[in-house]
Design a protein around this nucleic acid. Structure first.
Lengths: 174, 174
DNA sequence: ATAATATTTAGAATCATTCTAATTTACAGG
DNA sequence: CCTGTAAATTAGAATGATTCTAAATATTAT
């Protein structure tokens, strides 16, 4: 089972993630890497921590910045490499954008909807109950072997609405 | 109102679009351009036809190829320019990818779900009934001014399953 | 220690997209 | 019909995220 279907909590989720879940996810991710036969180096460990510590759904360069605070010489390529491995092991969810950098969710690597602010480019989890396992039903009805669902809501976040109640600005993503 | 909420037709939609709807959409798009004060030049008219004639959700270069059959000297920039105007007037839906070219839906410019084959990169409309106006309810619950929803299902299409029943291949989009 | 392997690196290459500055086209008023 | 102004179009350069490459470094098992 992926996510319970009726967790109807409300609104946008930007909780700082409690210690326990943090450590649990961290171990899961490390285990997944080891499982695949790749080493959990210090830089990779730091990358995982940066990824989990942020509630921003960080981009590769944001992660890079975070890792560099501990290991200044780290190359961007290392971040891209490791993210690639995490994708392969299903330990990170990639949220694609064509007009700006992709964003990554390491906390909840399974498909789930997000709220994307077109103005400030915030990306938040939207932990409203999703329909009722759309993946399965869509697979059955369409004949596709559905492996991933992307659902993103785009608009202006309450903060930006307060700041400038104008409508669409910023990024051109659909 | 955007789309009726219980049109529960089944599976993937790749109908060739009947003459009547084609002409109707074409006029709508042309009217929208004129309305904005931009001319419907021959190249732009051809672009609209190419966009509507294709059930592939074509990319900019596919559109470019189509326009070039009628106007060989057409520049890529013209396609990008016109697509940009269409986006501004809400006459085309952009389906973003970071690992490959964006795709465009001129037939149904409002937000709606698609099926994306990870192997052959087919993009189909998924005309299964969506929940029940998610945009409004999400706006109310989150405080966002939601203007656009992206819902895409990723997997392997029946054709590709037949050809090679292996699992995930191809593009790395989420 | 040593050899074999995996990791990391800097920088080059790629590719879709956007920008720029110049050229061409359309067209309104004489 | 001509002419001037604005819009449309163009080729090519610039951008920016991502991927690739080949060399350097670190790790591990023997």
């Amino acid at each position: 089972m992926l996510r319970q279907a009726s967790k109807a909590s409300i609104g946008s989720g930007s909780s700082p993630m409690d210690e326990a879940s943090f450590e649990l996810r961290l171990s899961e991710m490390k285990a997944a890497l080891r499982n695949k036969g790749v080493a959990v180096t210090r830089k990779r460990a730091k990358l995982l921590e940066v990824l989990l510590a942020s509630d921003r759904h960080p981009s590769v360069s944001e992660i890079h910045e975070g890792v560099k605070t501990a290991y200044p010489g780290t190359s961007l390529a290392t971040i891209y490499n490791t993210i690639e491995i995490l994708k392969e092991t299903g330990q990170v969810l990639e949220i694609e954008f064509s007009a700006s950098a992709n964003r990554y969710d390491g906390r909840i690597p399974a498909s789930h909807p997000h709220l994307v602010c077109l103005q400030c480019e915030k990306v938040e989890d939207m932990d409203i109950a999703a329909p009722h396992d759309p993946l399965d039903s869509v697979s059955q009805v369409t004949g596709y072997d559905i492996v991933r669902l992307r659902t993103d809501y785009y608009g202006t976040c309450p903060d930006c609405l307060k700041a400038s109640p104008s409508s669409s600005g910023g990024r051109g993503c659909a």
